[in-house]
């Protein structure tokens, strides 16, 4: 009984905390919050990124949306594996090609085939540079090609890097927003580089619109 309720309670506490610190607001600019299968691909600057996306999703969508996260980070220690697995139901992928046993693309496709939507950070790591975005990793392209019916929603997380920069533990309370842009899909015959460039551009454009 307690074991099944605990992840829900912890999830609710995390959402409440995110709201208290950031008063996060979801802006559904290019899509509506409807139960369609999607990959929300977002900029990545802080460990709290997927928590914010998760917070602004309506509860019904939240339970069906799984973040894709790095196994090396989320399986360390005792608390993180519980939060990663039980609370967020993350799809944990091994970022190291030498050690991994499962293909990350296959893992994501399997999660989609189970009916889940995904939160993906195609930059692959937290961006601490002065650039708006790091070059996208190819995973988004391969998953999109394997499951072309899934909507790819560019998602811009604004200001969370100031709230909790990499390496800081105490968050600064500042207002944040999560903006969902117009979905895109892989065009027939489009190659990997062209698609990734287009996806990057879509997210960068969204960021400019948010800044205005």
């Amino acid at each position: 009984m307690f074991k099944t309720i605990l992840p829900t309670l912890v999830g609710a506490a995390i959402v409440l905390f995110a709201r208290l610190v950031t008063a996060v607001r979801g802006v559904w600019q290019g899509v509506d919050p409807v139960p369609r299968q999607r990959i929300y691909f977002a900029n990545h600057g802080s460990n709290g990124d997927f928590v914010l996306i998760w917070t602004v999703l309506p509860p019904a969508l939240r339970t069906q949306t799984r973040p894709v996260a790095a196994a090396d980070y989320w399986l360390g220690g005792k608390l993180k594996p519980f939060i990663g697995r039980e609370v967020f139901n993350a799809v944990l992928i091994d970022r190291n090609p030498q050690t991994r046993r499962d293909d990350p693309v296959w893992q994501m496709v399997a999660a989609l085939d189970d009916g889940a939507s995904l939160i993906l950070f195609p930059e692959g790591t937290r961006n601490t540079s002065d650039e708006l975005l790091l070059p996208f990793k190819p995973g988004l392209f391969h998953v999109a090609q394997a499951r072309p019916d899934v909507e790819l929603v560019p998602t811009w997380i604004d200001n969370l890097t100031s709230v909790m920069p990499k390496g800081k533990v105490i968050p600064v309370p500042l207002l944040c927003s999560v903006t969902f842009g117009e979905p895109l899909a892989v065009i027939d015959g489009e190659d990997k580089a062209a698609f990734l460039k287009r996806a990057e551009a879509a997210l960068a454009t969204l960021a400019e619109e948010v800044a205005r």
């Binding site: 008063a23 200001n159 100031s162 920069p165 800081k168 105490i170 600064v172 309370p173 500042l174 207002l175």
Partner: peptide, 27 residues
């Protein structure tokens, strides 16, 4: 005050180095 300061400091100039100053301001 907390809610107001949160709105105000969202718009002010700040850099990574200000993290502690901001934490001290709020907490």
């Amino acid at each position: 005050s907390f809610a107001g300061l949160r709105e105000f400091l969202t718009l002010t100039a700040k850099r990574r180095a200000d993290h502690w100053a901001l934490v001290v301001s709020f907490f």
